[in-house]
Design a protein around this nucleic acid. Sequence first.
DNA 1: TCTGGGGTCCTAGGACCC
DNA 2: TCTGGGGTCCTAGGACCC
Length: 380
Amino acid sequence: MALANQATYFSEKEQSFDSIILYMDLDAFFASVEIRENPSLAGKPLIVGGNPKTKRGVVSTCSYEARKFGVHSGMPVSQAVKLCPHLVMVRGTYSLYTKVSNNIMGILKHYSDVMKVAGNDEAHLDLTDVVSDYEEARKLAMELKDDVYASEKLTCSVGIAPNKILAKIASETDKPDGLVVLKPLEISDFLAPLDITAIPGVGKKSKEIFIRNGVNTCGDLAKLPHQLVYQKFGKYGLKTWKLVNGYNTEKTEGKFVSRERKSISEERTFFHSYSNWKDIWVSLDSSIQTIVTKAKEKKMNFRTVTLKIRFQNFDTYTRSYSLQCYANSEKQVREVVSILLEEFSDKSPDNIRLVGVKISNMIKIDDNQKTLTQFFNKTD
DNA sequence: TCTGGGGTCCTAGGACCC
DNA sequence: TCTGGGGTCCTAGGACCC
């Protein structure tokens, strides 16, 4: 199909933008809370996460001063220390972060009933029914930022755009303490100069593939014919292509749909070698108990059990098994894990670095179903 | 550089069915 | 003797996000 036809290739609906979405992201959240609690940390390169004594683990969050040295979240602590020798490390006060996050989300709720919290430092608000235009949205965002700061002495970055993904991208372009408004007609021009990794979902691997094909910026991708994009980069590539060309790639359902949880898991890395399978099982049993308890709390049953095992050389395996009927007991999980673990029984337990268990293929037990189960149990 | 933990989504191959 | 095609489910691995 010729380039000229591309505009008509996708449905009208896909091109239409009829929402105003605000995205808020707390700046370097964990690190900022630590600095607030201990002002002597201000201005220093700070990381939260990892073990300060052993220098093991990874960076959870880092201050902007640390980012100047190339430190970023997910980076091994040992590497961060090499990049920035005078780095200050704190382990993190997670209960405090949760409390602060809850307070802030409570504030945000006043700005729109339609809200979606994504993690403890970010949220989307649907302002479509709250404001009449983007200028009004900007004013509201300024109030919101002031409110957050007045209440918690923390800054945030805000993006306003016609959908969630664009609002997020917009907010990322002005950090910290930024506010960016992106209107529908400005989208392609706004995205064009941005690095392709500005698109959420384009990470290290995808970037390599894009670069190999001459795509460095969003604008480079936008210029390619869409058939070529699909051929080279697949389904997700095409979706990204639509995004950078100003199409609305999000379903306009009006409200944010909250999705059911798909899986519950727990995994543990051993920071010292275990010498026998019994100790491995202590860890597995504890994980099984945790995840089954969570499933029960959420009133969900599950069919698939997955064992994850990682060796010292970082070779990682997953083995899963789907039960014929939905299950909900620790005993059932333990039996499956036991069978799945047999495959590794010839390995030395010293060599195991991590074990984990996941339950998935989940279903909500509604009240109706529950009474049915009770009925059958009684007649048994 | 020596790599945490909890998630989601995608891909690809194989089994099985009609 | 050389073997369709579509659909669905299961499993393993991997990219990515916060």
